[in-house]
Design a binder for these strands. Structure first.
Length: 571
DNA sequence: GCCGTTTTCGGCCCGACTGTTTTCAGTCG
């Protein structure tokens, strides 16, 4: 996507400017901010450029608009080419080392011009770097450790990995006598689909004791920083965890600050300043008197004239304006889900029986579960033949007689074949209670044909829900391109729901597309796509993503009680 | 480089930790 390409170039320009000693930090920030804005855009900048509306984008002025146009026209940005020509590749890569910023990278490069990590390591080991100003033995050691961390650390991990780790750390910390309260903050609390660092906040009146225990916790590999208010460690799996300890009185303000996002915080602080206040992690203060006005999250928002903004919305994507007008959505919650409409069993590629899955769903407090095993063409997953599907439905219905408290729906996840037809005959689908249709093959067909497949499936009149609509798989496969205007329009017209697949490797649709879909009047469904009992946890990730997409309860099909679901589905 | 109920100049969020420093610079979130 062209937006991402330009965003990456803007980020690169920002780093290059710093390396070249750019004296105006705000110029650098302007590029970084613009990069983030572009990544958050759902519309392609080339469309916006065609309408001549580039400088309507916040943070994009005359100059940056010009650079975007230059890229769209020529595929290059002259400033970036010029800077790049005068910057060795490794100088830029040195910035990836934690603790290594532009000033240090530049100093080292000017004197030694190392061409890669091996050379830099040799310099640090030999003690050669310490002849530079500001660098002594400890800095050398930190550079060596930083390189080691860079080599070990994988980039962002899915929330499915990060959340359980964070919860076990929070539980461990909560057991300490010195700890009054502990929470995961940062991008985890905002339920971002991927997590860079895990941020944990603790309230305690004996911070040093908490910190000392933290850096010695199980699984800690390296200690990056160990202070009395803040510490950072790297876990054996390579994930960085930052811990911040504050007094109980500041907990809300610290939670606000530590949850971010950075851009949301910056906006809040700007607002505060205009009102004569100052926000830091200890509270909201009146500048004139130095008095603390508020410290709970809610109270701080209120003092700024804003409604309370749930963490999932704190991305500076219009939530501050909406909060000022008291027009924030009432976000869907996990407890609003009445059922799950997409799950697999040991009839195909799931590991648990229909009964075991039903019991697990019931334990989650669900009223209904659609059992949607794979269709015949998906051989790799042991897709059911037409005959087997009939037996499957019969087994599901038989079980309903013996299991009070949960209603099982006989369903299928039917493949949308390469020509857009469905993988079971129409009369067979007609007999099912619930039909999920998904694309599992032919991902490379291109935007027009993939869109046409989904449109045809929706127009078949046999499909209730489109499963994982963009096919993305975290770390494996990017979302395929679709004509979303057409997909959303068709979904709304045919009253076909689109899935928010809660599997953490999918989270498909993603937050931005969900928001677009809601605006287009599309109904969504949060599904677990569970392949085992434990996967019903996925619903939590799905709801988190739905909330990031500004979904209310009424936008979600499986928030309907069973009766209404059946009525709506088969009128 | 952007932006404007402090509007075309002069601002731009704020604090912790570390190391190399005697009062601060660099980096990070």
């Amino acid at each position: 996507m062209v937006n991402t390409q330009i965003a990456d170039l803007f980020e690169e320009i920002a780093s290059l400017l710093e390396l070249h000693g750019e004296s105006n930090p705000f110029r650098v920030r302007a590029y970084r901010r613009a990069a983030l804005t572009l990544k958050n855009l759902t519309e392609s900048v080339s469309d916006i450029a065609e309408r001549g509306e580039l400088d309507d984008i916040p943070g994009i002025g005359k100059d940056l608009a010009g650079k975007i146009r230059e890229y769209l026209k020529s595929g290059r940005i002259t400033l970036r080419e010029d800077l790049k020509r005068n910057t060795p590749d490794f100088m830029l890569r040195m910035l990836e080392i934690p603790g290594m910023g532009p000033k240090t990278a530049r100093t080292i490069h000017e004197r030694f011009k190392p061409g890669g990590y091996p050379e830099l390591k040799k310099l640090a080991r030999s003690g050669a770097l310490r002849e530079l100003p500001g660098i002594r033995e400890k800095t050398e050691r930190h550079i060596l450790e930083g390189i080691e961390i860079t080599e070990r650390k994988h980039s962002r991990v899915s929330i499915g990995e990060a959340l359980p780790l964070a919860r076990s750390l929070v539980a461990g910390l909560s057991r300490l006598d010195a700890v009054d309260r502990a929470d995961a903050a940062g991008s985890l609390r905002r339920m971002r689909e991927t997590i860079g660092d895990v941020d944990i906040l603790v309230a305690s009146s004996s911070p040093q004791a908490v910190m000392d225990a933290f850096v010695k916790m199980d699984g800690v590999w390296k200690v990056l920083a160990h202070g009395h208010a803040r510490s950072s460690v790297v876990m054996r799996e390579g994930m960085q965890v930052d811990l911040r300890v504050v007094e109980k009185e500041c907990y809300g303000a610290a939670l606000l600050y530590f949850t971010g996002s950075k851009d949301h915080s910056i906006r809040l602080r700007g607002l505060a300043k205009k009102k004569g206040y100052k926000i830091n992690e200890y509270g909201l203060f009146e500048i004139r008197s130095g008095k603390r006005i508020a410290s709970a999250e809610k109270d701080i928002y209120e003092a700024l004239g804003l409604a309370y903004i749930p963490p999932e919305l704190r991305e500076d994507r219009g939530e501050i304006e909406a909060a000022a007008r008291k027009r924030l959505p009432r976000l869907v919650e996990l407890k609003d889900l009445k059922g799950d409409l997409h799950a697999h069993t040991d009839w195909t590629d799931g590991v648990d029986s229909i009964r075991a899955m039903a019991e697990a769903a019931q334990k989650m407090g669900l009223e209904y579960l659609a059992v949607t095993d794979h269709s015949r063409s998906l051989h790799i997953a042991g897709g059911l033949s037409s005959e087997r599907l009939s037996e499957h439905s019969a087994a599901v219905r038989e079980l309903n007689k013996t299991m009070p408290g949960i209603r099982l729906l006989a369903g299928a996840e039917v493949d949308v074949l390469e020509d857009g037809s469905l993988d079971y005959p129409s009369d067979l689908l007609e007999k099912l209670d619930f039909v999920v249709a998904s694309i599992h093959s032919g991902f490379r067909q291109g935007k027009a044909r993939l869109t046409e497949r989904l449109v045809r499936a929706m127009r078949s009149g046999r499909v209730d829900l489109i499963g994982h609509p963009t096919g993305r798989l975290f770390g494996e496969r990017n979302a395929y391109e679709l004509d979303f205007d057409l997909v959303f329009k068709t979904a709304a017209e045919t009253r076909t729901a689109l899935e928010i697949n809660g599997c953490p490797e999918r989270l498909d649709l993603d937050d931005l597309r969900i928001r677009e879909a809601v605006r287009a009047g599309v109904t969504l469904a949060v599904s677990s796509d569970a392949h085992s009992k434990s996967h019903f946890n996925n619903l939590e990730y799905g709801v988190g993503t739905a909330r990031r997409g500004w979904c209310e309860k009424d936008d979600i099909l499986n928030c309907l009680p069973l009766k209404e679901l059946l009525k709506k589905n088969r009128p």
